[in-house]
Design a protein around this nucleic acid. Sequence first.
DNA 1: AATAAAATTTAGATTAGTCTAAAAATAAAT
DNA 2: ATTTATTTTTAGACTAATCTAAATTTTATT
Lengths: 223, 223
Amino acid sequence: MIQLSSTEENYLKNIYRLLAEGGEKVGTNEIAALTGTKAASVSDMLKKLAEKQLLSYRKYHGVSLTEEGTKTALLILRRQRLWEVFLVEKLKFAWDEVAAIAEELEHVKAPVLVRRLDEYLGFPKFDPHGDPIPDEFGEWESSPRVLLQEVAPGKAGKVVAVTNSSAAFLSYLDKVGIYIGAKVEVLDKIEFDGSVELRIDGGKTVYLSREVAANLQVRLHPS
Amino acid sequence: MIQLSSTEENYLKNIYRLLAEGGEKVGTNEIAALTGTKAASVSDMLKKLAEKQLLSYRKYHGVSLTEEGTKTALLILRRQRLWEVFLVEKLKFAWDEVAAIAEELEHVKAPVLVRRLDEYLGFPKFDPHGDPIPDEFGEWESSPRVLLQEVAPGKAGKVVAVTNSSAAFLSYLDKVGIYIGAKVEVLDKIEFDGSVELRIDGGKTVYLSREVAANLQVRLHPS
DNA sequence: AATAAAATTTAGATTAGTCTAAAAATAAAT
DNA sequence: ATTTATTTTTAGACTAATCTAAATTTTATT
């Protein structure tokens, strides 16, 4: 593995994340939005990373990661998520406070540190947001998905899929503020009609009917 | 406190260290040697840091830290030393392996992280090398230290620091079984060459040359 | 298919940190 | 007190990462 700057690592990580939820390719504007830069800067960086064989880049047509690039991105995510576990489990931060700090810690490179940290934490498989932690080969355990309908009150998780993709359904979700990746917390379940009281992204709460809740898959946060 | 780059922090920390053992002022060459740069680069940086009121700088006459600069340097040392404690106590690194890793970790800025880490480690007062850890106000417990060379026969104490950290020296110490925290008892001092007969951890005894004894600091046990 | 809109890339400039080589100032030595 | 040696500073150039504004390419719309 080549030695990368923290900046390059950040680009790689963000490109990976966009590809993971998006599709085949990502464009410079999307990347710019996520890295907090401008499309012009992204263009330059893409050239550099393509040079290093970490992504394949055809001008004006977006990028995808190479095998090597994917492996590297997963290593960075591994470091980020291990630090998040540390911050929550050991230093008692709340799971929604750790992002910025882990962002800094994840760029500490020493591989032996990552190994020892992993061991110290007991080889966790998921971070406090419920995202899987890749092992040193980039493999991870896929965590079970549950229908929102099945989630017990008090539990929190993240929307990972919809099982109905009619336009009507999707635009309803949009209207109430639910999207793939939204953090949701089940506040209550109403017995007689199976509807669910839900807090979205730690903000507003909505009631979803049983039909809606039966078409949303979530991945639960650990414990 | 102004936001500093990791590079600026490194300069500050190294200038502090030179002043602590040296004297009133330090020159650009000394600083360059410690930061791994050239004197010309140091000149530029000194101007910048003087601009920010962190040190006082008279051309051609070396620098000293201002009140603010000293406070900042101590905060950086605090972070470095807390991470060293973490690496040794929690991740089971050896005390002579942690320098490079702590060097990276110390530049993670979030103040709340430092506070939580301190708490998590049980508010340690000394790092694994025996150096004091400043509190958030820059104060630290001064423990009287003596050079092993100066310790009278019959006295016992604990090794708290080495004043030479060359790999050759450290590996020699390792070889004879001396480490930070080792309990040592001076059995005899040989007049004509200044060497010291030492019992280590109540076990084996070794003879250390005057040169070696002059580079080991111990904290004497009471009585 | 032609044109308008959106996205992307290039060109040229900027900032932080560094370097080498030359100039200037201080310190040491005759 | 001059001269020599050492240290420090300046001048000018380089790299990484960024920006704005203009040019280009692709996509969408009439």
